[in-house]
Write a protein that binds this DNA or RNA. Structure first.
Lengths: 116, 116
DNA sequence: GACTTGTATCGTATATTTACGATCAACGAA
DNA sequence: TTCGTTGATCGTAAATATACGATACAAGTC
């Protein structure tokens, strides 16, 4: 961080920041805005299924549909998937959840936060 | 709470709870999943504009579109609006943000939480 | 009453999302 | 090589979201 920054951030700079955060938050929220995708993120964060087929088995949707949801989550940064021979192993990115919670809490200016 | 409940919650009960939480989280996330709506929630939580017209002035969209976004947020429980003479005064519901953060953190089973 | 102001709703065009069957591509096994 | 298995992608139909002008509607003001 630039030490020559003024202590108080200019108002228009703060507005720009808010806009960027609105977009980042909206993007992450959008990816999570489907029960099946929330279920997938929860499943992967819980350390449960990792292999794509296992996920498909637990979500009552067709394989093509689950694959599409996985793609949405991957593009938004919620999960990553690495090829493991003939299978693909997906796992969640916990730092995305951290960021998401941070952005959500940042909606409210005066909410108490634990020092990071 | 029923004191005769077993200490450990049955697995299928936990699955049902997760499903309900996935749906609740997805619904709140969906309402927030647009930069303009995130901006409106941020604006209202910051104690800024409250009157509908003031919100319209700050969002670079047509009045009809902003009104539609307000409706989405109201239906999801993010905001409420009360008629004040000829105007409508909107305000955020901070408890919804609290719930939202709680649901998001609940995606990860082992994340450290401060005792509520 | 007529008129203005502030907001919601209607109608509509366009874009995006959701879901699924079908198909394709990659890989390992026979 | 020829399978079978796994997962992504294609094509497509239906639903939903987004945006806006036009209009309705409600509450003041004249």
């Amino acid at each position: 961080m630039d030490p020559n920054q003024p202590i108080s951030i200019p108002l228009d700079r703060r507005a720009k920041d808010s806009e960027a955060q609105n977009e980042e938050l909206a993007k992450l929220a959008k990816a999570l805005a489907h029960p099946a995708r929330a279920a997938i993120v929860r499943l992967l964060l819980s350390g449960g299924e990792c292999v794509c087929g296992g996920i498909v088995d637990r979500i009552p949707l067709a394989q093509a549909t689950v694959s599409q949801h996985l793609k949405v989550l991957k593009e938004a940064g919620w999960i990553k998937g690495e090829v493991d021979g003939p299978r693909v192993c997906y796992c969640a990115r916990p730092e995305t959840l951290t960021r998401f919670v941070e952005l959500a809490r940042g909606l409210e200016p005066t909410m108490e936060r634990s020092p990071s």
